[in-house]
Amino acid sequence: MTIPGTPTPAPGKKVNRIGLALTAYRGGKSTLCAGCGHNAISERIIEAFFEMGVDGQQVIKLSGIGCSSKSPAYFLGQSHGLNAVHGRMPSVATGAMLANKGMLAIGVSGDGDTGAIGIGQFVHLMRRNVPMIYIVENNGCYGLTKGQLSPTADIGSTLKNGVVNDLPAIDLCALAIDLGASFVARSFSGDKRQMLSLLEAAIAHRGTAMLDIISPCVTFNDHEGSTKSYSYVKDHDEPLEEISFVPFFEDISVDYEPGTVQAVSLHDGSTVFLKKLAGDYDPTNKSMARRVIYESAARGEVATGLIYIEPNRPDFLALLNLVDQPLASLPAEKTRPPREALDAIMDALR
């Protein structure tokens, strides 16, 4: 039994419940800058899928365009992946999940990819609650096009080239909650433990799991004056809870002090345990979730953890009353109506 939250002991040697070693979850070699937050996130994704014993053949990974969006090539090498166009990965993911609802989709986007060019598709993804994990690797700037401001840059923050941002930031978590997202979390690429638990919970969640992960760009936005730098986030991180995750296949037995821990069960039988740091914080309470985001932002802090969860909201595919078999693999007998059907249609048009 693993105590939830305890870091996994020396991965690599052990195999997971489907008999695979951690290396089976790796992808190609990263071409991102050394020290880029995005690389740390890829590592956590590899660990989380390994820990959860997910079959890579059942996963699709998607992204838009940007440094962040390159990262799906660097994890889960056994899975099909698709690099869409800038900001428009949500629609591709939606179509893919319509085609095969048995897949587990993970999408990686950037703050420009999501908050600027892709904000429309982001909005509708959240609203539809398409089952997928949607990660925003948020560095407050455009990495791939060399350091322009992004819409998540905080007002007053500066870029390395001295440009000061004079527009308010879009808070993607607050927006996602407003839009009806069913799983909204924020974390920091430097917080291994929290990110791993959140990712595992996201894998178990059915619906869109939106993770806004602050992921400093060491090349263009990791300096004094940036609010998305390693040092700034380390100093201003305000965890809402200590989060631990117990997958459905493990015995639930946790040490916790009653009254300070909230357990939320997810659709596949897994449970997230949230050891509250912030008083009465309840991640199933929408107005409380909004308030904690705004209040911590007003204090110049970044609230991290599982901010909001609604585990039972029906996902988009459930609303469509689809047959059990993936649409993509239905045989022609199921997809081409019989002669009598066409005859009946023709008769009605005479």
Partner: peptide, 19 residues
Amino acid sequence: AEDELSALGMALGAGWLGA
């Protein structure tokens, strides 16, 4: 869909998965 960008994106996503 929410617009034609998305409509085609969904169609392509589904085509990618073999639908």
